[in-house]
Simulated assay, not measured.
Amino acid sequence: MALWDQLGGLFGSEEGGVSGAVQQLLERNGGLSGLVEKFQQGGLSEVVGSWVGTGENLPVSAEQIQSVLGNEQVTALAEKVGIDPQQLSANLAEYLPQLVDKLTPNGALPEEGGLLSHGLDALKGFFKH
Rank of each mutant, 00 (worst) to 15 (best):
F127T: 14
P97F: 05
F39T: 07
L109C: 08
K102Q: 13
L10N: 09
G30Y: 03
S61V: 05
L109V: 07
L92Q: 04
S89N: 05
L35K: 10
L58H: 10
G30M: 02
T104M: 03
G125T: 12
V68E: 08
L116P: 06
S13M: 01
L109F: 06
S67D: 10
V18A: 14
N106A: 12
N106T: 12
L92H: 10
Q64E: 15
L35I: 10
L92W: 08
A108H: 10
L44Q: 15
L25C: 02
S13V: 10
E15L: 08
A21W: 01
L77K: 07
L120S: 05
D101Y: 09
E72H: 11
K38L: 14
P97Y: 06
S33T: 14
S33N: 08
L7P: 00
Q40A: 06
L99S: 05
G114C: 06
A76L: 09
T54M: 12
G17C: 03
E112M: 06
E27T: 14
D101S: 15
E56N: 09
P110V: 09
E79M: 08
L77Y: 02
K102S: 13
V81D: 07
F11L: 15
V22W: 07
K80N: 11
L44H: 11
G30H: 07
Q98M: 11
V52W: 07
I83T: 13
D84M: 01
R28W: 02
T75Q: 14
Q24N: 09
T104E: 03
V47Y: 03
L88D: 04
A90Y: 00
L115T: 09
G8T: 09
G43A: 06
V52I: 13
L3E: 05
G31V: 06
I65S: 01
I65H: 02
E79A: 12
Q98F: 11
L7N: 04
S61G: 10
A108M: 12
L120F: 05
G34N: 09
W4M: 12
G17D: 04
E63K: 11
D121E: 13
A2Q: 09
A93C: 07
E79D: 13
S45C: 01
V52C: 08
K102N: 07
L115S: 14
E46Y: 01
L44E: 12
L25R: 08
G12S: 09
L10G: 04
Q86T: 12
I65D: 01
N57P: 15
V100F: 07
E72Q: 15
K124Q: 14
I65L: 03
Q6D: 13
G107Q: 08
N29V: 06
T54G: 14
E63S: 13
E15G: 01
E72I: 11
Q64G: 01
D101G: 13
K124Y: 14
E27P: 00
A90I: 01
Q98C: 00
V36P: 11
L69V: 04
E72N: 10
A62I: 02
E94A: 13
D101P: 00
A108I: 10
T104P: 03
V48H: 05
N29C: 04
L26H: 08
Q41I: 00
N29I: 03
S33E: 14
K102H: 12
G113V: 11
E14R: 14
L109W: 09
A76I: 03
L88F: 05
T75G: 03
G8F: 00
N57W: 00
G12A: 09
G12W: 05
Q24V: 05
P110D: 06
Q40T: 12
Q98W: 03
L120I: 15
E72D: 14
H129L: 11
Q87C: 00
F126C: 11
